[in-house]
């Protein structure tokens, strides 16, 4: 079942997550180099710091906007909504706040789209929605997207931004979404439909230890936080000296977990090239938007 909707228009008043203590929307302070920029300049530069190249976090729709052919995105699965299956203290309030502050219905947005004329299923996560954490609704949305990918035999391109990992407010249900999404990817693997992951800041824990690590091809944006357990959780035991770039894209690349680190400016064209290279014999027909 697909809810067709119009191409997205950004809700007003949603500013970058990295904006801190600045007059509403006008100025942004780079979290890395502390340079203060005119927000419009950052906006024009794909939300990359013009001084130090820091990649600001993108909202799900900004991500989609930067990636797909204009007007080609058709939203799917957006009506699958989280509930509070455990009666977990504070969860309904947190959910309601996330929905109203982000304008999203959960932490991932999925749809069909064209990238340089090639059809794909696409998904983008939004860190501002409960840390991009994966609950039952996220799992269900993603598996539906995978199944659509298999059904249509078109690649699945997925952007992570799931610092929250599995959403603990849904307890065992959210842990099992790791298995559920991996089941969907086992199906894609058997059907030999390509699955391309782009790791973006931040991607952690239960998400990194499931669908985010299972891409046939795994790209990462520079400087993203990517890892299994937070510094505090994982390394308190032995006072182990951690490398400065611990759990960064560059660290994961060095460890062999990432195919390429791709600058945001090159991301769309890299994806387009990959989709071209992976196209099935005889089906490489570009569609104009």
């Amino acid at each position: 079942m697909r809810a067709k909707s119009r191409w997205f228009t950004k809700p007003s008043g949603r500013n970058g997550s990295a904006v801190t203590n600045m007059p509403e929307g006008l100025w942004v302070k780079c979290p890395r180099c502390a340079e203060i920029h005119f927000a419009k300049d950052i906006e024009r530069n794909l939300r990359i710091c013009t001084k130090c190249d820091y990649h600001y976090r993108l909202h799900a729709y900004e991500r989609i906007d930067l990636t797909v052919d204009e007007g080609s995105f058709v939203k799917i699965n957006d009506d699958v909504m989280s509930v509070d299956p455990l009666g977990f203290p504070g969860y309904p309030e947190k959910l309601a706040r996330a929905i109203s502050s982000t304008g999203l219905t959960d932490a991932v947005v999925c749809g069909e789209a064209l990238i340089d004329g090639r059809r794909c299923v696409i998904s983008a996560a939004d860190f501002d929605f409960l840390g991009g954490s994966m609950g039952s609704a996220v799992g269900e949305r993603l598996v539906r997207a995978m199944e659509l990918s298999v059904e249509l035999r078109i690649p699945f391109v997925l952007f992570t931004a799931n610092g929250g990992g599995a959403r603990m407010f849904e307890g065992l249900y959210s842990l099992m979404q790791m298995a559920k999404t991996s089941a969907g990817l086992a199906k894609m693997e058997r059907a030999a439909v390509p699955y391309i992951v782009v790791l973006t800041d931040p991607t952690m824990a239960g998400v990194y230890a499931s669908y985010a690590s299972l891409g046939d091809i795994i790209l990462a944006e520079p400087g993203a936080l990517i890892g299994f357990a937070g510094r505090r959780v994982g390394n308190q035991d032995m006072g182990m000296k951690l490398p400065d770039d611990f759990q960064s894209s560059e660290f994961q690349f060095r460890c062999g977990m990432v195919d390429q680190i791709v600058h945001r400016r090159e991301l769309r064209s890299t994806l387009a090239t990959l989709l071209m290279l992976l196209a099935e014999e005889g089906s490489d027909v570009k569609t104009s938007a």
Binding site: A209, S213, M257
Partner: peptide, 15 residues
Amino acid sequence: ANLMAEEEGISRAIA
């Protein structure tokens, strides 16, 4: 979840 586990790809291994 220590440094070595991260270097050796604990997330990928589980996934």
